[in-house]
C-alpha cells in the first residue's frame, strides 16, 4: 500500500468518505439515515472538542452551550431579525467565535477542576439565557425553525441533509487534520504533554489554548445551527448540561487525541441507545455496562486501544 494512503489525512478521509457512501447505500430506510445524520452532527462537535481536550489538554463541560447558541442563531435570527436562514449559521458561528474568544483568556487561565467548573458555568448560563428570554426563544418549550431554502428549493429531506452533514463533517475533519499537522498542532500537542516544557520551548501557551477553544466553539455552533435547520425545532435542552457531558463522553470513549476515534465515539454513543431500545427498561443498565467495559478494557478509547492491540498482534 502506498505510504500516502496510510496517512490519516488522505487514507483516513478516504475511508471516512467510503463509509459514508456505504451507510447511505445500506440504510434500509430513512430512520437509519436520521440516526446517521445525528451521528454526523455530533461528530462535527466532537472533532473540534477533541482538539481542545485531546490535543490542547483543556476540558470543557460547556460545549453544548455553544451548540445551543448556534442552534438558536438559526432559529431566532430569521424569525425576529429577518436574517435569511442560509446566513444565520454563519452569523451564529462568528458571534460564538467572538464570544469564545472573549471568555477564553480568563477561563483558560484556570486548570483542572476550576477550568471544568468555569466552562460548566458558561454552558449553564447559556442554557438559562435560552430558557428565560422567552419573548425571543420561546422559553422552555422551544421554538420552530424556518426551513432552509436554497434557490427557492426547500431543504428538508433526509437525503439532502445526509449529503450536507457528510460534506461538512469531511470538511471539518480535513481542516482539523491540517491544523494538527501544522506548527499550531505541534504546539498544542506539546501543551498537552507538559505546559511548562512547551512554554520553555517558546510556545505561546495562552494563544494556542485560545485558538483551540475558539475553533472548537465555532464547530459546535455550526453543528448546532445545522441540527436546528435539519430538525425544524429547537429547545433549550440542546444547550443543557447533559448534552455537554455526552459530548465529552464521545471524545473520551472514542479516543482522546484521535480525530477519527472521536467520530467513532460519536457514532457509538448516538446509535447505541437506538439499538438498545429492544431491552426497554434495561436499556440504561446495558448502556452503562458497555461504557464501563470499554473504559476498563480499552482504556485509551475505542480506536487508539484497538489499533494498539492490532499492532501488538502483528509484531508479536
Amino acid at each position: 500500500m502506498p505510504a500516502w494512503l496510510m496517512q490519516p489525512r488522505t487514507g483516513g478521509l478516504l475511508l471516512l468518505a467510503a463509509i459514508m457512501v456505504l451507510v447511505y447505500l445500506a440504510a434500509p430506510n430513512n430512520f437509519y439515515l436520521d440516526v446517521a445524520i445525528q451521528i454526523g452532527l455530533n461528530a462535527i462537535v466532537v472533532v473540534g472538542l477533541n482538539l481542545l481536550i485531546g490535543y490542547a489538554g483543556q476540558i470543557s463541560l460547556g460545549h453544548a452551550g455553544f451548540f445551543g447558541l448556534g442552534a438558536y442563531a438559526s432559529a431566532v435570527l430569521p424569525a425576529h431579525f429577518g436574517v435569511p436562514p442560509l446566513a444565520a449559521p454563519v452569523v451564529g458561528m462568528l458571534s460564538v467565535g467572538l464570544l469564545a474568544f472573549l471568555v477564553a483568556r480568563p477561563i483558560l487561565r484556570l486548570k483542572g477542576h476550576y477550568l471544568a467548573m468555569a466552562t460548566l458555568g458558561l454552558g449553564i448560563l447559556v442554557f438559562m439565557l435560552l430558557t428565560n428570554e422567552s419573548q425571543l426563544t420561546g422559553g422552555p418549550d422551544g421554538m420552530a425553525v424556518e426551513r432552509l431554502r436554497i434557490f427557492g428549493e426547500r431543504i428538508s429531506g433526509k437525503d439532502w441533509w445526509y449529503l450536507i452533514t457528510a460534506a461538512m463533517l469531511l470538511l471539518s475533519v480535513w481542516l482539523t487534520l491540517n491544523l494538527i499537522d501544522s506548527p499550531t498542532g505541534r504546539a498544542l500537542r506539546a501543551l498537552h504533554d507538559s505546559q511548562i516544557a512547551a512554554q520553555v520551548a517558546g510556545v505561546d501557551v495562552a494563544r494556542f489554548k485560545v485558538i483551540a477553544f475558539v475553533y472548537s466553539a465555532m464547530l459546535a455552533s455550526l453543528a448546532g445551527s445545522m441540527s436546528a435547520l435539519y430538525s425544524g425545532f429547537v429547545t433549550p435542552d440542546k444547550a443543557g448540561f447533559i448534552h455537554s457531558i455526552e459530548l465529552v463522553i464521545m471524545v473520551v470513549l472514542g479516543g482522546m487525541g484521535s480525530t477519527f476515534g472521536g467520530i467513532l465515539g460519536a457514532a457509538v454513543l448516538t446509535s447505541l441507545p437506538q439499538f438498545l431500545t429492544v431491552f426497554a427498561e434495561y436499556e440504561h443498565m446495558i448502556l452503562g455496562a458497555i461504557l464501563m467495559a470499554v473504559m476498563i478494557f480499552l482504556r485509551r478509547g475505542i480506536l487508539p486501544s484497538t489499533l494498539d492491540l492490532l499492532a501488538r498482534r502483528r509484531t508479536g
Binding site: 430513512n30 430512520f31 437509519y32 436520521d34 445525528q38 429547545t235 441507545p273 431500545t277
Partner: peptide, 21 residues
C-alpha cells in the same frame, strides 16, 4: 412505545423511527 426521557431531540429521533422503521 418509546421513552423520550423528556428530551425533545430524542423524541424527534424516536418519532422518525416510528414513522420510517
Amino acid at each position: 412505545v418509546y421513552d423520550s426521557e423528556g428530551d425533545a431531540n430524542k423524541a424527534r429521533t424516536l418519532a422518525t423511527r416510528l414513522i420510517e422503521d
